[in-house]
């Protein structure tokens, strides 16, 4: 398991891909720093709507996890090296797990760092109804970290499966994220129960409903989000293992 994890990490960390991911992750921090320094003020809802939800959770989070997770198996298929892995006398779930972990480690580290730093920066300049002192911002930062972690794990489970079953995984992932979670969920609220973005926002709100009060009207219940994220992750993990067990390895 450990050598597989190390191998998977090395495969993911190609220089151009890392650079692009770091660039994306730097955006929320840079924008928050710019606005809070130049304007001197950043309202709570503005920060949450634009930076946290719009930029990070609805945009950068799915794109980064998509690029990482679909290539976990996708590149093995394209390079026809999957058979080397599958021929090892290792249980199939022990092949899937390190692949997942590698994407979660790379994606999670970068995204959580981005979210937490942006939140600390944003919180220090937030004015308005909910003025945050340092304590509050720590709690908010923790909420952001946990919510992003849940988001990364759930997306990774889905996209790793997609990368294994389809050569066009990113296309379908893009459609799921930006059509289903982005567009359709604005018309049909129920979609949030089947949307990783919905879970992420709900966990954010559930962990600190004071700071993230502006999200109140568009989040599902906290427990539902936790259960939803856990169920989706488990189901897709199982689907990936099952597919790996049944497929004809090229």
């Amino acid at each position: 398991m450990e050598p597989l994890l190390r191998l998977s990490l090395r495969q993911l960390a190609s220089r151009s891909r890392l650079l692009l991911i770091l660039l994306l992750a730097a955006l929320p921090v840079a924008l928050t720093a710019l606005i809070s320094n130049v304007e001197g003020k950043f309202s709570n809802s503005e920060f949450i709507n634009h930076i946290l939800d719009g930029l990070l959770i609805a945009g950068i989070l799915p794109i980064v996890t998509m690029v990482l997770a679909t290539s976990a198996f996708g590149n093995e298929m394209e390079d026809r090296t999957l058979s080397y892995l599958v021929l090892k006398p290792v249980r199939r779930w022990l092949i899937v797990l390190p692949k997942l972990l590698a994407s979660i480690i790379v994606g999670g580290l970068v995204l959580i760092a981005s979210g937490v730093i942006a939140t600390r920066l944003g919180a220090s300049s937030i004015v308005g109804a909910t003025v945050l002192v340092l304590d509050g911002s720590l709690q908010a930062a923790l909420a952001v970290g946990v919510a992003l972690f849940a988001g990364v794990v759930t997306y990774t489970a889905i996209f790793t499966w997609a990368g294994l079953v389809s050569t066009r995984a990113i296309a379908f992932a893009l459609i799921y994220v930006f059509l289903w979670e982005g567009l359709i969920s604005t018309f049909f609220g129920g979609v949030r129960y089947l949307s990783v973005r919905g879970y992420t926002l709900a966990i954010l709100h559930g962990m600190d409903d004071e700071t993230f009060a502006p999200l109140k009207d568009r989040v599902i219940e906290f427990p539902a989000a936790l259960v939803g994220a856990a169920v989706i992750t488990t189901v897709f993990f199982w689907l990936t293992v099952r597919h790996l067990r049944r497929m004809d390895v090229p």
Binding site: I51, G54, G59, I60, L174, F178
Partner: peptide, 16 residues
Amino acid sequence: IGLFIISVPITGVLTI
């Protein structure tokens, strides 16, 4: 898609 989607909240922040 990243370019088009991400430019929306960036514009949002800068035109608050």
